[in-house]
Design a protein around this nucleic acid. Sequence first.
DNA 1: AAATAAAGTGAGCGCTCACTCACATATTAA
DNA 2: TTAATATGTGAGTGAGCGCTCACTTTATTT
Lengths: 194, 194
Amino acid sequence: MKDFSEKQRNIINAAIELIAEKGIQQLTIKNLSKKIGTAEGAIYRHFDSKFEILVGILKLFRQNKDEALQNLKTKEKSSLQKIESLLSARFRQFSENPAIASVIFSEEIFQNEKSLANEVYEIMVESQKGIETIILNGQSQKQIREDISAEQLTLLITGALRLLVTQWRLSEFSFDLQTEGQKLWKSIYKIVTK
Amino acid sequence: MKDFSEKQRNIINAAIELIAEKGIQQLTIKNLSKKIGTAEGAIYRHFDSKFEILVGILKLFRQNKDEALQNLKTKEKSSLQKIESLLSARFRQFSENPAIASVIFSEEIFQNEKSLANEVYEIMVESQKGIETIILNGQSQKQIREDISAEQLTLLITGALRLLVTQWRLSEFSFDLQTEGQKLWKSIYKIVTK
DNA sequence: AAATAAAGTGAGCGCTCACTCACATATTAA
DNA sequence: TTAATATGTGAGTGAGCGCTCACTTTATTT
């Protein structure tokens, strides 16, 4: 699994932005080259096919997720603090790069190709497993209520996170995501600590 | 706003199934006519354009939502019972018609066209307003906790519902949605009643 | 400075797309 | 029964798609 060159990252970022702006159906090589400011053919010096660009987007998302989870493990924090960190890091990332917010929870984009759809699902499951593990830890340390399973709490937390981001996007970023994200965290805190 | 003819409903349902199976990019007039068993041209006797078929899908979703909310108003139930009814009705609907589950929460399908994307957002907001109203009622009757706003509780409930359905779809319907839906309701019940 | 490699260019290829239209067939009205 | 209307058919149209390739330009190595 090699890393991307600078040009490749440019192309991937432009692709994410294009999808965010116009939807997957407008992610064409022509539009992509226009966005980057090169001829169409140039793209094929860096990617074998359009498919590989989509693969690249998912690879980037997977890296982000791995980094976020890895980052937490090194720190000395309580389970609740870890969850708060994860959430606020997410909201910050999306605020700084709204295009990612528009693509990362849109599984439909990759539904065209079976192998991509599967990758999307795997990333989602792994990401939630990370949160579930933190919650399980919090439960065994009696910081998080135990009358609701870690799986269910994860579903509630992740679901709300996703929906909030989706609303932010569909409303054309009409509210401050980080502010609303903090509100959400306060609610989650009340709920998980009972 | 006229109702659809039988042929039009056939076409809309086939379109939903196609999107569910192969993604929006495979919703082509050729594939659609193959699915229905007619020639391509026949479709244009019932819809002016492919765009109008997408509009039709959204119209159907809006009708479903309106009916579900209207249905509840007539019944004599507590707020908590109403929410449970809403959720279980949803899960039943999706179990019986998985294709709808695959499309209804995939907002990016309609992202291609600004007017459609807006419609999608409106339906979402209205749907949540319905739940929020029920929760507000439950709060004023002291059946639902008041230390978390109705808006936030709606976000948590709706988010979890959506995510559960999405997981069910991405896992290729690998678990029983209604069973998991009941589990979710039990968790939600514990949370909202404190 | 010359040679080699890497990156960019854009016309053009085969293909699929949404959609049209002249015609055929089925349904309803007179 | 005939006329009128609605519906179905499928080859055809121009446009746009992903992608290729002969060629040019830029960067790197000798």
